[in-house]
């Protein structure tokens, strides 16, 4: 294990879903249409880093998160954690993987088993991985609940999910994710379904994991504002590909890709005295079955030209560790 090796290395990852259309599949059995949810993505995440994965619906960001956590298998490409190929892990070894890697899900109302109390939910990972006594387990549950802000723990251990608010449920879910002391967490939109005043506390909680425990986080979100708060680096996804990646501050200050520019400019500003400059974008996101040929953004891009329709731009590295996939990146 090398110290300067990235903790997580995603290399040319593809996740395609085969879709067969009724009668046509009988007539031409070899012709599959694919939903190219993740289409050749490469990304690195270093120890103790929070990296943001930004994208709108259909971008493939959630699918990417699930492949990293082995909820799905890649179609091609690799996910390396500490140098080990994640997709090659055999089912009986998978348990060990889940001691290092965990996931937080978006919907606080669906993330907990409605039949389990908080204690039951938090007991599960402990029972599966360790052989602890009842008191030891209880102690660990209590201390984890305190860490996520559910204090005093006694008030929450015997509650069922429907007896708790959305924010409290999400905290229990976060407690479940950290109770095994993972080194890496995939957080898939953990705050988008929470009230505004609770959102901030959850974001601060995630920040504290990085600061106090050195946990690395892949933070998936459509909300650039939360990404800018948490993440030191970010990558912008569109229809399965990364279009731009780099340090958060620099990308937000000086975006290069037209899509990134449009995304940033579309965010409303909570200050009536500031006027924002809107970068207009035509039309809607095409559906995943009809990804445009050439640069997948060209139909909506105001700068599109002939070359964009024909050739798909690769991710090129510019200065300052910025990568952009655009023919006019220079």
């Amino acid at each position: 294990m090398h110290q300067d090796q990235p903790l997580l290395a995603i290399k040319n990852l593809k996740k395609w879903y085969a879709v067969r259309f009724g009668l046509s599949s009988l007539l031409r059995p070899s012709e599959h249409t694919y939903i190219r949810a993740v289409d050749d993505v490469s990304l690195d995440l270093n120890r103790g880093e929070i990296v943001g994965l930004v994208g709108e619906s259909g971008s493939g960001k959630t699918t990417l998160g699930e492949v990293v956590v082995r909820l799905q298998r890649p179609t091609s490409g690799m996910v390396l954690l500490n140098g080990t190929d994640v997709s090659a892990i055999r089912k009986d070894r998978l348990r060990r993987y889940y001691r290092d890697v965990q996931m937080i899900f978006q919907d606080p109302y669906e993330t907990l088993n409605p039949r389990f109390t908080t204690a039951g939910t938090l007991d599960e990972p402990l029972k599966i991985h360790f052989n602890l006594s009842d008191t030891d387990r209880r102690e660990r549950i209590d201390s984890t609940l305190r860490v996520v802000g559910l204090d005093p723990p006694d008030m929450f251990v015997d509650k069922y999910p429907h007896e708790m608010s959305g924010g409290q449920r999400q905290r229990v879910a976060i407690a479940r994710a950290i109770i095994l002391n993972p080194s890496f967490i995939v957080a898939d939109e953990p705050t988008s379904m929470l009230d505004v005043s609770i959102r901030a506390s959850i974001l601060n909680l995630l920040k504290s994991f990085k600061q106090n425990y050195g946990v690395s986080i892949l933070y998936i979100s459509h909300d650039l504002s939360t990404v800018s708060y948490l993440c030191s680096r970010l990558a912008v996804m569109y229809l399965g590909k990364i279009l731009e990646a780099g340090s958060t501050d620099k990308v937000l200050q000086d975006p290069v890709h037209p899509y990134t520019k449009a995304l940033i400019s579309a965010i409303p500003i909570a200050d009536p005295n500031v006027k924002r400059e809107r970068v207009s974008v035509k039309g809607d996101i095409p559906d995943a079955l009809h990804i445009p040929l050439g640069c997948r953004f060209w139909p909506r891009c105001s700068k599109a030209e002939e070359v964009c329709r024909k050739e798909e731009p690769g991710l090129e590295e510019l200065q300052d560790a910025r990568t952009v996939a655009c023919h006019f990146a220079v």
Partner: peptide, 22 residues
């Protein structure tokens, strides 16, 4: 005031949440 403090924006460097729930 609490709402404004806790609302993440592209410029916010710190977020202060309102403790508790409604």
């Amino acid at each position: 005031i609490g709402l404004r403090n806790s609302f993440p924006s592209l410029r916010s460097k710190s977020l202060i949440s309102i403790p508790g729930s409604p």
